[in-house]
Computed example of a mutant assay.
Amino acid sequence: MYEPIRTKSVHSTPAGPPSDFPHRSREEELDIQLAGHLGALLAVTDDLRALTASAELDTAAERLAREICRLRGGRTPLRAAPGASGDPAVLHRRAHALAGRALVVAASRADTAAAILAAERMDAHTAALTGPKELSTAH
């Protein structure tokens, strides 16, 4: 019927010897992924801060840096000098998308602090894109 396998498997098995390359747990992989999304969000936030000075953006950047530092075991995130050019609407859309990705990963790893921060950033960028809403005076 079938030819028996004559070569050694390239996949390690629990009964086999441990492999030479390091493996990361699912939680470690999610930490790395979340820190990456938050790092990208921090970069866009810094770009927005260069375009429009805002205490809210300054606070958001500080909170993002703290979360990244926590996820990376105390290592502070690298921050590039922000470019002072670009369309704020494009940057807000990019930041909204990055915050959404961070929210998905934070939810999958059950990281409440990061999920709350990501959701708040999504709301802030949505508000920046839609502008201030006027109150209705209709009776």
Rank of each mutant, 00 (worst) to 15 (best):
E67L: 13
P18V: 11
A97T: 13
D111H: 13
R75M: 09
I5T: 11
G131T: 09
R75N: 07
Q33T: 14
L71Y: 02
A43T: 15
A138L: 13
P77Y: 03
A107K: 08
P132L: 11
F21D: 07
A53Q: 12
A128D: 01
A61G: 15
G131H: 10
L78C: 01
I32S: 08
A124S: 11
A124G: 07
P22N: 07
H125S: 08
G83M: 03
K133M: 04
K8M: 10
A138E: 10
R70I: 01
G100F: 06
T137E: 05
T137H: 12
Y2E: 14
H139V: 11
T76F: 02
E134L: 12
S136L: 11
R75I: 09
K8E: 12
E27R: 10
R49Y: 01
T130G: 03
L91M: 09
G74E: 02
A124W: 02
H11T: 07
R72H: 07
L41F: 03
M1C: 12
L135P: 01
H125Q: 14
A110R: 15
I32Y: 07
T137I: 05
I32T: 11
A60V: 09
I116P: 00
H92R: 15
H96G: 02
C69R: 14
P82H: 06
A61K: 04
S9W: 07
G39K: 02
M122N: 08
A50F: 00
R24M: 09
A35P: 04
P77H: 04
L78S: 09
L64M: 14
L78G: 11
A128S: 11
D58A: 13
R70H: 06
A127F: 02
H139S: 13
A81I: 05
D46M: 09
A106T: 04
A124I: 01
A43S: 15
L57N: 02
S85L: 04
R121H: 02
V90R: 14
A113I: 05
A95G: 11
L78F: 10
M1I: 08
A50I: 00
L64N: 06
E67Q: 15
I5N: 13
F21T: 14
L117G: 04
A89F: 00
R75Y: 03
H11I: 06
T45E: 07
V10D: 13
A115E: 09
I5L: 14
M122L: 13
G100D: 09
D47N: 13
L34S: 08
A102W: 01
L71E: 00
T137V: 05
I32Q: 12
S136N: 12
A102R: 05
A55R: 13
R66L: 05
A99P: 01
R75K: 14
T52R: 12
P22Y: 03
P14R: 12
T52K: 12
R6Q: 03
I116H: 08
G39P: 00
H11E: 07
A113C: 00
A97D: 10
L64Y: 06
A15M: 06
